Computed example of a mutant assay.
Amino acid sequence: MFSISDIDNIIINSLKEDMPAGDITTDNIIDENAMSFAKMIAKDSGVIAGLDVAKRVFELLDQDVKFDKHTEDGQWVSKGDVIATIHGKTRALLKGERTALNILQRLSGIATITRQYADKIKHLKAKVVDTRKTTPGLRMLEKYAVRVGGGTNHRFCLSDGVLIKDNHIKAAGGIKKAIELVRNKIPHTIKIEVETETIDQVLEAIDGKADIIMLDNMGLDMMKEAVKIINGKAIVEASGNVTLDTIVEIAETGVDIISVGSLTHSVRAFDISMKIT
């Protein structure tokens, strides 16, 4: 999944951003030895993701902090539920509050919307996957949240797999030419995906022996025709303007994968508050 050092780097950078020269409010009001107890409370209903990351925020600020989870990542919580309790130095609780909540709220929002998409098509073969439309610096966490919500991950980065998009096709002089160029330079273990917008492009991708064919912004009728033409010769991915209202019809065309950029690029944060008691 990811290492503790990866998480620490994200948290440390976030804390530096939030208090580059300390917290002038907390440091001048709260005694350095003061201790407090706090609750994290769900103000929405949905799927929680990122509790261990939130815990790590406070551990980096107070090595003796006690963070007790009242639920686990992937569990559904209701508005008003206490999702965690924290006991430690008051300064640490106050300094870590916003960073911990920002991460927890965003990841829980992603997990919640992913669960909604996944549940819509759980009776069909298609899988919901994410995209690279993520928050800079938070990709590993956001893709983790997608998995927590019941989705799966597309490639993590540009180094992971070949995806020949419209601009590559134009620059190379065609789909088949682009496939030939890349296939001669990559290991045989790496799959090649091609983005298509027309039936002619689908036929060219098949002729070039693409492993995965993306149907980009196609209408339902064209998508059905493309799936029939591909007929198992490649994995079929649907992409473009997928919503909760359209995903079932898209899945019913017979595609294998449905990529949804909105899982990460425009998700609404899951509302959580932290209250010192």
Rank of each mutant, 00 (worst) to 15 (best):
F67Y: 13
A226G: 07
H123E: 06
M214V: 00
I113Y: 04
V255E: 00
A126G: 03
I250C: 03
R132G: 10
M19A: 14
K16L: 12
N231R: 11
D160L: 02
L181H: 07
D64C: 06
S259Q: 04
S78F: 14
H70T: 07
T131I: 07
G22W: 05
Q105K: 14
H123G: 06
K55R: 14
K170L: 15
A171Q: 10
K224H: 13
E193L: 03
D23A: 03
K228Y: 06
G219W: 11
L158W: 14
Q105W: 04
I121E: 07
I192W: 03
S273M: 11
I230P: 06
I169M: 04
G254A: 11
K127P: 00
E59W: 01
K125L: 00
D31R: 09
T99P: 04
A172N: 09
I258L: 11
V146P: 01
L163R: 01
I212L: 01
T246L: 09
C157F: 01
K66H: 03
R56I: 00
K185V: 07
D31V: 04
G50Y: 08
K224A: 10
H168D: 05
L60H: 07
I24E: 14
A38T: 11
K127D: 06
M222W: 06
D211V: 00
G46F: 12
G208E: 00
D8M: 12
Q116S: 14
P20R: 01
I186D: 02
G161S: 15
V248I: 08
V260F: 05
G22N: 05
G22C: 08
A126T: 11
T135N: 09
Q201K: 10
T90G: 07
H168W: 12
A111P: 07
T114W: 08
K143F: 07
G80Y: 08
N241C: 06
H168G: 07
I235N: 03
R183F: 06
M1T: 14
T277K: 12
F156I: 09
D130T: 05
A145W: 08
D160K: 00
Q201N: 11
N167V: 04
A126P: 04
Q75T: 11
V146D: 09
L163S: 05
S14Q: 04
V255R: 00
V267D: 10
C157Y: 01
I250R: 09
A38E: 00
I41L: 10
I110D: 02
Q75C: 13
R115D: 04
N9W: 09
I190Q: 14
G96N: 12
M140G: 03
V53G: 00
L138P: 06
G50E: 03
I110S: 13
M35V: 03
K170M: 05
I11S: 07
S159W: 02
